[in-house]
Design a protein around this nucleic acid. Structure first.
Lengths: 232, 232
DNA sequence: CGGACTTTTGAAGTAATTCAAGGGGAGTGG
DNA sequence: CCACTCCCCTTGAATTACTTCAAAAGTCCG
C-alpha cells in the first residue's frame, strides 16, 4: 500500500526494469492505483488510448472482436506486464479490449506522462521497444502454428504456453492459475469449443490432463509436449 | 550514390524519421551500403542478429520455417522499412529469414552502433517502438482473420493488403508490384496453392482479377473488398 | 528447343465445423 | 437446505470446406 513498496514493484515491471531509483520515484509520484473486479473492462476496443497501466496483481485477457461478434484472444497479461500499449506508440484507438479475468490491481498513468518519460529517458523507450518486439515475436509463432498445424497440436501448444505463463504446481499436476473455459481455449487456438471439448476429453482418458469447469490441470506435460511436436 | 542523398533517404525511413540533420549525418557516416540480388538471403532464421538494415530500393520477404520445412510468410518489406529488428531489441536469434524478392539496395549498420544510437537518442528508440507496435498490430489483424475467416475472405484480405503496400496503377487495374506466386499467396493466407489457384480462377472469371505467372492485377477492387467483408 | 518452374483442374478423402440435444456444477433465492 | 436457474460442458450425427493426390498444360529462361 505504501509508496516505497510501489517503487519496488515498478522496478520489476517490464516497462520500468533497469530504471534508477530517482526515476522510479518520479514515476511513482505520477501514478495512480486502480482495482478492477473479475469481468470488468479495463480497455475497450476502439476507444482512444488515454491511459497506460502495469499489472500488479491479477490476470487480464486481451481480445479482438470482429464486426459480426466473433472473438479472438490475443493474449493474457499478468503481473509486471503493460496494459494499453497503443498509448505508448500514439495509436489512435485501442486495437482490442482488455478484461479482468481475476480481481486485478493495476498502477496507471496518463498516456502523456508516460510518453514524456519515454522521450526523456531512452531506457524506457527501449523497454517499450523490447516489450513490443517480444509480443510481435509471440504473434509470429502463433501465426505459424495457426497456418501449419492441425487443431490438436494447436490446442496442445496453447495449453503449454499458458502453463509457461501461469502454471502452478499442485498435487495432480501443473494447474493453469486462472479460470479458463473451453470457449477461451477455442478462441486462442482458432477452433470451436466443441473441438476443444472433444480433444480434452480424449486427453483426459489418456491421463494427460485433468479438467473441470473452467479449470485445466496438466498431469503429463511430456506427453502433451510430444503431441505439440508430432509431425503429420 | 553520394553521401548527401543517403542522408535524405535516411530521413525518410521509419527508423530515422524526425531525426535532426546532424544525427542523420552521423548515422550516415556509420553506415554501409549493400546490394542483394533477387533470391539472395539477407538474414537467415536462427542466425545471431549482428546487422540492421533499412531498405532503399526493392522488396523483401520475411518467412518463418517449421522443423518439417513448411513455410509461412510473416510479411513483405519495402523502401523505408527496417530489416533485422531482432538486433534492435537484443534478441539472441533471428526469428525468421529475409529473402530479396527483387534486386535490393540496403543501408546497414552493425547492431552495436544502432543500439548505441538508440540509447543516446530516445527519438530513435521511440521510432523502434512505433515500428514494432505497428508490426504487432498487423499481426493481431492477421491472427484474427486466420482464426475467424474462411479461405476466400482470407485470400481477399491478403491481396488487398498487398495492394495497399505495393499497388501500382496500370491500364488493367492495380498491379502488385513484385513477383508473387500462388504458393506465396497460400503461405500468407494459411492455405494451399491449389486453393489459391482455384479461387483466383473463379475471380478471374468474374473479372475481379487478372493474373499471370507470379503476377496479380486487381481489376475490380470494390468487388474484392466486398468479398473480404462479406459475412458467413 | 529443352527443361524447370508455375499453374490449372478433376476426383477422392477427411478433419473439423455445424447442428442438435442433453447433462452437470455453482451459485442464488426462497 | 433444497430447488431453481444459468452457465458451461459433453457427445452424437450430419455436413462441408478444404486438403491431398494425381496428372497435365503453360510459361519462361538459358
Amino acid at each position: 500500500m505504501d509508496d516505497q513498496s510501489d517503487v519496488e514493484v515498478l522496478g520489476r515491471t517490464e516497462l520500468f526494469r533497469g530504471a534508477p531509483l530517482d526515476l522510479l520515484a518520479e514515476v511513482q509520484r505520477a501514478s495512480f492505483r486502480k482495482r478492477f473486479a473479475a469481468g470488468e473492462a479495463i480497455v475497450r476496443q476502439g476507444d482512444p488510448p488515454a491511459t497506460v497501466y502495469v499489472v500488479v496483481v491479477g490476470r487480464l485477457r486481451v481480445t479482438q472482436t470482429t464486426l459480426d461478434g466473433q472473438q479472438v484472444i490475443i493474449r493474457y497479461l499478468g503481473p509486471g506486464e503493460v496494459v494499453g500499449y497503443a498509448a505508448l506508440v500514439d495509436g489512435d484507438a485501442h486495437p482490442g479490449s482488455v478484461i479482468a479475468v481475476d480481481d486485478c490491481h493495476l498502477i496507471g498513468w496518463s498516456a502523456a506522462v508516460v510518453r514524456d518519460i519515454m522521450s526523456r529517458h531512452s531506457l524506457i523507450a527501449i523497454n517499450v521497444a523490447r516489450i513490443l518486439g517480444g509480443r510481435y515475436l509471440d504473434m509470429q509463432v502463433r501465426l505459424r502454428e495457426l497456418s501449419t498445424e492441425k487443431v490438436e497440436r494447436r490446442i496442445a501448444h496453447t495449453i503449454l504456453r499458458l502453463v509457461e505463463q501461469a502454471g502452478r504446481r499442485t498435487a495432480r499436476g501443473i494447474e493453469i492459475a486462472f479460470p479458463l473455459s473451453r470457449q477461451d481455449l477455442a478462441e486462442m487456438s482458432g477452433t470451436t469449443l466443441h473441438t476443444v471439448s472433444r480433444t480434452l476429453s480424449a486427453w483426459e482418458e489418456r491421463g494427460i490432463v485433468d479438467c473441470g469447469r473452467r479449470r485445466v490441470v496438466v498431469a503429463k506435460s511430456q506427453l502433451l509436449e510430444s503431441i505439440a511436436e508430432e509431425q503429420a
